[in-house]
Design a protein around this nucleic acid. Sequence first.
RNA 1: GGCGGCAUAGCCAAGUGGCAAGGCAGAGGUCUGCAAAACCUCUAUACCCCGGUUCGAAUCCGGGUGCCGCCUCCA
Length: 473
Amino acid sequence: MIRLRNTLTQSKEALTPLEPGRVRLYVCGVTVYDHCHIGHGRVMVAFDVLSRLLRHEGLKTFYVRNITDIDDKILERAGDKGIPYERLTEGMIESFQGDMAWLGVQPPDVEPRATEHIQEMVALIERLLVKGVAYEAGGDVYFRVRSVPDFGALSKKELDELIAGSRVEVNPKKRDPLDFVLWKAASDTDAGFPSPFGKGRPGWHIECSAMAMRYLGDLLDIHGGGEDLVFPHHENERAQTLAATGKPLANLWMHVGFVTMKDVKMSKSLGNTVYLRDLKASYHPEALRVALLSTHYRSPLDFSFELVENTGRALYRFYLARARQEARLRSGQGGKGRTKEARALKEEFLGSLKDDLNTPRAIGAIFKTLGLLQEKPGVDEETYKELLGLYKEADEILGAFGLEPCAFLERIESAFFKEKRLDQGTLQELVRARELARGQKDFQRADAIREQVKGYGVLLEDTPEGTLVRLDV
RNA sequence: GGCGGCAUAGCCAAGUGGCAAGGCAGAGGUCUGCAAAACCUCUAUACCCCGGUUCGAAUCCGGGUGCCGCCUCCA
């Protein structure tokens, strides 16, 4: 049983799919007018983990994540750059997909684009017009918010209080200041699509309802996105779908908390953003992924480079311990039989994830296996097999902890040597020279070499098997 | 102003009624030519404050305080 917190009811609920064994999942993706920052990355990773977990639990999951490729910001940005908006969005979609691949986010089953579903949106708007809950005004079409009695249920807002606190400039075309636009008229020179209401483009909210309904039907099991989408975006999606179909679009609404920088929300409009693409050069994607999952998805995550560095260090230690354990087993040295503990950790891992995606606790369980590996003689073959099962599960669901230790270490090392401008050949020579000096008990020279190499961030450890090169990551 | 959320060690972060996970950082010890790594031990008499419920609360209830977010495009 998977339990998830529902924004609508403000409590954890057992996930009970509409159709047994199948889950319909829709997540609001990105508006492609700029590159993705860490906040986007967090949401995508969170729902990536959710979809992986659902599938791991044997639920056939159909995951739809949209791309908003037409809106005011896009047109504005393209205008600033003096390029057609399609060129801007194509470039940003490519950038987005590159970032997601780097982060290990699996593609959704369908990634619909707004511009390719104008027909569905127009049809839905027409439905709303027929029902009398929408009206045309000067080429625009608006949705009558007051036609939905429980408007505000999702975001816990009272209509009248919204008006009181409203800072929106009044649009004279609206009959009620809270009404939102379903279709926006375009001038002759503006980008736009033909429609029965005239040339124009869809409002932001209608696209998600239309595309969700197109691919998943009138009612979803789970609809998710960032916390800032609760109001107005999801509230409006819910209202318009409810008005059109009598169904509230989704049974369960999930929202991911913000990424902050020094406790202030990271947002494009505030300019305190760190883009995913800027992290690619310096960090292993697994370090960022684990860092993003080390805080529960609903809590704010205060981002810092230190956080990623610390996580990278912990991962390095993790893979080193595994490499050592594997070396022990290869050389035929047995360890302790700890299968009971290993199984308990495995249960803790999966149980945590099934309880509202408690990734921090699940990650804690993974790190607890380190204690088993590193305690005196390590573990025996059977126990390690059990642990490998856990790591495989972590790889499948979290998309982390499942690499071949050597693969991870080599990747870290190659990046390291590239960055530090110390080539491996020179290092090997120094290590040989030092071993020679040590053999002659010339410890002064040996220590000097160790110091020299340390300047490059390389640590030399003397072990019975010879010199071990370790990186100060 | 309205609504929502959060407050756990130096830092990050679990824990939702029964001895306070885990990570990072730090201290001491074992080991070592010296180190490092690893291991062992230690690092919150205690979970923002004040009341209450209970045999028992970080955990439930009431009242404060502080921080954050939404109410406007935003993941």
